[in-house]
Design a binder for these strands. Structure first.
Lengths: 334, 334
DNA sequence: CCGATTTACGAAATCGATTTCGTAAAGTGT
DNA sequence: ACACTTTACGAAATCGATTTCGTAAATCGG
């Protein structure tokens, strides 16, 4: 029904080849006919069919974002990343296709790849298993992992500097005089947790403080997990004077436990989170954190992926983006 | 490079027609060959090319989500809606394509429509102008507006029940004894604000309370807007005993102003927000709100849109979803 | 003015699937 | 055994663009 390239060619007594070339700015079309074609194209309200060009060009000008369900739990994270990513993509004439549920298994992923619905993939997963990475490499699919480091040397990723961010937060607490610092960790999967946790341990050791297993409690990505962890730490015979929460949601939860016991921050106990999500900013008192440059990470992953789509034999890119500490009233007044 | 339908047909000495029919379960293929074809398809790792079927079928099995930039400001909102929507879409074999920046103008929207990159659109805009609605109807593009009522009788939309939600919140405040209630509004665009504001005014009038213009202050969708509004209300000669914030972000901001003055909630002043975003839940004290069923709204819009894609001459669907009041400590203890 | 190059265009193949239509072969009823 | 319906498959058109290759006409150089 809609107007095609043939309609234009018929109206002007030209071949479809010439019309196509005129529209795409090929040089073997005279200036006059180019203008003519473009004029009538506009006049007729012509817009190229995406499916047809996709089929012929073997490109879709779309990139796929594959999210983990558990990542979706952190809505701030998701939204900021997506805004950065979409901005970058649209600026380059690309659009973003979202995959959340189904795309987790190798099978369905393979289906996605082979269907060539998109030119490349951005993975926003807590952890990208080695077999998936192998498969992607074997299929020669352009892809990049966002927000996590990946072990495989051929995989590209862009991630925040979790280690140094966590180290700097520890330094901050240390400078404020804290020596007994609790840490809420996660069941060790992925490097995000490891990086932050290693920074915690390294800092302590490098400053002559012994790592006390009692001060390390495990949480999950569940609503009240940080709350229980907070109570667990405060129940200790020698409770910590500061708590380093694995991320801001956990911190906000832990804060509930702290306040519930009538303790005040930062006098009775200090608290830091990680990621820079809005919950921590709006908490009372606001919680010191290391802010991930989420929009930048989104933007950069898209930009990098686009380069790989242009040239698939580029060497892998593995990039760490610095985080920004924001000191708030959960650790120091004013 | 990848394996096509022709590879299968050659290997089995069948025509591509038969292969295609076998794969798509047509009845004019014998049971035996169907199994044979499907077997070798799996064996060869065949997956249909999206571009090719899109072109032929004139469908993409994708739906476009068009977001306003200002909607993106509310990340919780965005994330929850998208999760609900994507779940529903993927369950029906569809995927979601995101459009944020560029798609705002009629021109670029027309381009999107004509390109047929997607089978239909979900608009998540504060306000969908009449000329856009007219254009969409004229182009016979399946579409639905999410989260806002739309004036045009032919437009489909799914929105929360802002009016009754706001009315119920007013009732709640009234039952707690509040008679001077402040309201933070927005520059009147879109019906969301109007609905909540009208409920506010209607409730007051219906309960014999005069609407005091001093108690109504305007905010914008900007970081500290609610904070200023809060101070403005508290600066009044006769300040309100309760504040109804247009939405939770504004409420959290206003809470800053309240706490800054040493006032305590709910004793000195009560506060309610709207939408049920996580900031309000994590605030201290947590803020009473009307929770929008965001995931449901996302799900329902996709489900409705899919029906319209199936049958484009369905009558428009205009549906209001109830909101749920959640009473928290910003209005009453315990 | 003549051979060589450039310019401007068209014919046809192609991308990979779906779908219509036609037709042998097999099955059915009487 | 004969007309008739089913069954199972293939040929070919089609979706709408891009791109390669070929060629007539125009231009150029000396």
């Amino acid at each position: 029904m809609s107007v095609t390239i043939e309609d234009i060619s018929k109206k002007l007594n030209l071949s479809t080849s010439t019309v196509s070339k005129a529209l795409n700015g090929y040089k073997d079309v005279s200036e006059k006919t180019r203008e003519l074609v473009r004029g009538t194209a506009k006049e007729l309200g012509y817009h190229p069919s995406a499916a047809a060009r996709n089929l012929r060009r073997q490109r879709t000008d779309k990139i796929g974002f594959i999210f983990n369900n558990s990542v979706m739990y952190i809505s701030d994270y998701f939204a900021e990343v997506i805004v950065g990513a979409t901005t970058a993509a649209e600026a380059a004439g690309h659009n973003i296709v979202l995959y959340i549920g189904e795309a987790g298994s190798p099978d369905s992923l393979l289906k996605l790849i082979r269907a060539k619905e998109v030119d490349g993939f951005v993975f926003v997963w807590n952890h990208v298993p080695a077999n998936i990475v192998e498969m992607l490499l074997e299929e020669r699919t352009p892809f990049i992992v966002l927000g996590r480091r990946v072990g495989h040397p051929q995989a590209s990723w862009i991630a925040p500097d979790n280690y140094n961010g966590a180290y700097a937060l520890m330094q901050h607490l240390y400078d404020l005089g804290h020596r007994r610092i609790g840490f809420t960790t996660r069941p060790s999967m992925g490097r995000t947790n490891d990086d932050r946790f290693n920074a915690y341990k390294d800092f302590l050791i490098q400053n002559g403080i012994q790592v006390d297993p009692d001060l390390i409690v495990e949480t999950r990505l569940e609503p009240l997990s940080g709350y229980h962890a907070g109570h667990q730490l405060l129940d200790l015979a020698k409770p910590p004077t500061a708590i380093f929460a694995f991320h801001d949601y956990v911190a906000v939860d832990a804060q509930k436990a702290i306040l519930e016991r009538g303790l005040s921050m930062p006098d009775d106990i200090a608290l830091v989170g990680f990621d820079g999500l809005s919950v921590g900013r709006f908490a009372a008192p606001p919680i010191t954190t290391a802010i991930q440059p989420l929009a930048d990470i989104g933007r950069e992953s898209v930009a990098t992926l686009l380069k790989r789509i242009e040239n698939n034999s580029l060497p892998p890119i593995q990039k760490t983006l610095p985080v920004t500490l924001e000191f708030r009233r959960s650790t120091a007044k004013n």
